[in-house]
């Protein structure tokens, strides 16, 4: 899709990088968490444009939703800095992050102008176009890995909080 001379992917990519920058440079942690959710939302739009709707739905519901909830809960439980403390630390923090937008801009311009032609080889192996077939039939071991990883996470958190209560 074209908007004038610009393709829509360029606008989405621009917003993606800008939201990521805002996330890193945001003054309060809460704003940073909201910025991260926005970055995920932008990535979701990009995935949808690249014909990956299932991964996009996962990204939107899990990364933009669940992880934001985890971050905001952690921030509220850890009593972050008050606004007065934030203003106090702001100058020192901003001085560390001030070069970042310029670095990103320069890197983006440099690599955009260099334009390396990366020819991705198309694998000649049997091509399956249905993600459900790949996930449930061809890559079942991935699912086992996911289950083990989820269990490890659940046990890890349980043990962490058990030790905390024990003290």
């Amino acid at each position: 899709m074209r908007l004038g001379n610009l393709e829509i992917e360029i606008i989405i990519a621009l917003f993606l990088v800008l939201t990521a920058l805002w996330t890193v440079m945001a003054r309060s942690l809460l704003r940073a968490a909201i910025g991260l959710a926005l970055t995920s939302a932008m990535l979701t739009v990009m995935m949808y444009k690249l014909n990956a709707p299932l991964a996009a739905v996962f990204e939107l519901s899990v990364c933009s939703g669940l992880i934001s909830v985890i971050f905001i809960t952690t921030i509220s439980l850890t009593q972050p800095l008050t606004w007065a403390e934030i203003y106090e630390h702001e100058r020192e923090r901003l001085s560390r992050f001030r070069p970042l937008p310029f670095i990103i801009l320069l890197l983006g311009l440099f690599f955009w102008l260099v334009k390396v032609d990366l020819a991705l080889p198309t694998v000649v192996a049997e091509k399956v176009t249905d993600v459900r077939v790949v996930l449930w039939s061809l890559r079942q071991l991935d699912l086992v890995g996911q289950i083990i990883c989820l269990l490890a996470g659940a046990f890890g958190v349980t043990i962490l909080f058990k030790a905390w209560r024990g003290k």
Binding site: N51, A55, V62, V123, V128, V131, V134, Q146, L150, G153
Partner: peptide, 18 residues
Amino acid sequence: HLALAQSLVITLIVMEVV
């Protein structure tokens, strides 16, 4: 190979959450 890529991304998202 978008089907394979999506399958990998779903696995990556699960790992990310954990």
